[in-house]
Amino acid sequence: MTGYRGLTWDHPRGRHALEAAAAATADAAGRPLIEWGVHSLEGFESAPIGELAERYDVIVLDHPHLGDALAAGVLRPIDELFPAELVDRLRRDTVGPSAASYTVDGALWALPLDAATQVSVRLPEVLDAAPATWREVAALAEGGDVPVALSLAGPHALLSLLSVCAAFGAEPATTPGHGLVDARNGAAALELLADLARRAPAGSARLNPIDLLERMRRVRDIAFVPLVYGYVNYASGPGALVFGDAPAQVAGGRPGSTIGGTGIAITVRSTPDRALLDHLARLFDPAVQAGFIPEHDGQPSLRSAWTNDVVNAASGDFYRGTLTTIEHASVRPRVPGYTAFQSAASAMLRDAMLADRTSLTRRAALEVVDAVNTRFDALASLSLTERSHA
């Protein structure tokens, strides 16, 4: 049996199921088929994929990394490694745009293992139900009695803006050339988020999603977050939080959200044998998705697991409560340079939201959105340059 090096992210949701599955493959010498290493959530979100692919055979990644990965030619297409029946089933049966997010030019470049998107989360002892619209969210925060926070750290200021834009009826672009978001729509979304940010509990804007949810569960000084990536691990046990759909513009409208989750990619440095391919394929067996994965702190990707009664009973209905949101989630661009752009644009937006404790003017919001759009459109020339050297 060949030993492979894998990389995932350092959270129970990201590592426990993969490590347990690998342990079950150990040979007579006790060596697992895949030796999983980990890096932080921040590393998962922004580490250069080309550098990681030089050191690992199997990488758990997020779909925006595909732009840089494909430009560098460091991944093997899933379609050429696995049976067509499995690929077709993943395209058909994974929840929301999970498989679509890892599909570029008709090819699947990662196995969509973990499905997640931005959803709302609340303290059940403070809020009986989550606000259904952004107007209701704003009113809740303005009332002052219920602490409302936003997820703004790292790339999440930009991701929150993209999701509000989608809820407001303007789908963000996936290719550069005509801006990332509609200027007026983006400015309105930025004004709304800036108003919420200035009312949020101190220090909350600098917390990544894991730390934000940990603070909610343990300190309980944040009662509601309208958009944060859902983690089933915080939906049960002591201090359980309640997750629900993201807000819409109007009641019954589309809940704006930007899909995340993870996919398992195989790098070109690896020569995968049948043992590895069969091992990875087993992770997508419906029984494994509804049993082994959630039993080991994972978040499945198959719709059948998201609608499973046992899986939902064990998770406070986390999956059914957020199903509508993930089914309508947006996919981010998969172009070279996007992950670096995402970090830089998020910093620009976060600075604008947190610059002072007064309202952001429409003119100032338009200027920031224009700067983000200009920076995004600059990726068009990078894409052309990368392709010419591919």
Results as ranks from 00 to 15, higher is better:
Leu140Asn: 07
Pro247Phe: 01
Thr258Asp: 08
Val126Phe: 07
Asp10Phe: 02
Arg15Gly: 05
Val219Glu: 13
Ala352Met: 06
Pro176Val: 00
Pro12Phe: 03
Ala265Tyr: 06
Ala22Thr: 06
Pro155Thr: 12
Phe168Ser: 07
Arg89Tyr: 04
Tyr56Gly: 07
Ala345Cys: 12
Leu158Arg: 09
Arg282Leu: 11
Arg15Leu: 07
His279Cys: 09
Phe376Gln: 04
Pro32Asn: 12
Arg254Ser: 10
Leu302Gln: 06
Thr339Lys: 14
Leu190Val: 03
Arg206Glu: 10
Ala26Val: 14
Pro286Asp: 04
His11Arg: 15
Leu227Asn: 01
Gln342Asn: 11
Thr258Cys: 13
Asp285Tyr: 07
Phe292Arg: 07
Glu142Trp: 07
Thr258Arg: 09
Gly186Phe: 08
Glu125Thr: 11
Val104Lys: 09
Pro294Lys: 08
Ala100Val: 00
Leu18Val: 02
Pro294Asn: 06
Ala340Leu: 04
Trp134Asn: 07
Ala157Gly: 13
Ile59Leu: 15
Gly6Trp: 02
Ala141Lys: 08
Val335Ser: 02
Val58Phe: 00
Ser343Asn: 11
Leu86Lys: 03
Thr258Met: 11
Gln249His: 14
Pro32Thr: 08
Ala380Ser: 14
Ser120Asp: 00
Ala28Pro: 09
Gly3Gln: 13
Phe292Asp: 12
Ala275Trp: 09
Phe82Glu: 00
Val146Ile: 03
Gly321Val: 09
Leu66Pro: 00
Leu212Asn: 05
Pro300His: 06
Arg215Ser: 04
Phe292Ala: 11
Gly253Thr: 01
Ser160Pro: 05
Ala23Leu: 14
Leu212Arg: 03
Thr174Asn: 13
Ser383Asp: 10
Met348Arg: 15
Thr322Asp: 02
Ile259Gln: 14
Leu190His: 07
Thr174Ala: 15
Arg320Ile: 08
Ala141His: 12
Thr307Asp: 09
Pro247His: 06
Phe376Arg: 03
Arg334Ser: 05
Ser315Ala: 10
Ala355Gly: 10
Glu42Trp: 10
Ala205Trp: 01
Gly106Met: 02
Ser98Met: 15
Pro131Ile: 04
Gly30Cys: 15
Val121Gly: 09
Ala116Val: 02
Pro112Val: 01
Ala265Gly: 10
Ser160Arg: 14
Leu159Ala: 15
Leu140Asp: 07
His156Ala: 12
Thr374His: 11
Ala248Phe: 05
Ser46Phe: 10
Gly73Ser: 03
Arg215Glu: 00
Ser343Gln: 14
Ala170Gly: 06
Leu81Trp: 11
Thr117Tyr: 00
His11Pro: 01
Thr174Arg: 15
Arg274Val: 13
Leu280Lys: 07
Leu61Met: 15
Glu367Val: 00
Ala187Ile: 00
Gly316Trp: 01
Arg135Phe: 02
Thr322Asn: 13
Ile34Tyr: 06
Gln289Pro: 02
Arg218Leu: 12
Arg269Ala: 09
Ile266Pro: 07
Ala47Val: 01
Asp297Asn: 14
Ala17Cys: 06
Ala188Glu: 11
Val95Gly: 06
Ala20Phe: 00
Asp79Lys: 08
Gly230Arg: 05
Leu379Asp: 06
Leu354Ala: 06
Arg206His: 11
Val164Ser: 08
Ser160Phe: 08
Arg122Phe: 04
Pro333Ser: 08
Val38Tyr: 09
Ala251Val: 10
Gly230Lys: 02
Thr339Ser: 13
Asp309Lys: 05
Phe284Asp: 03
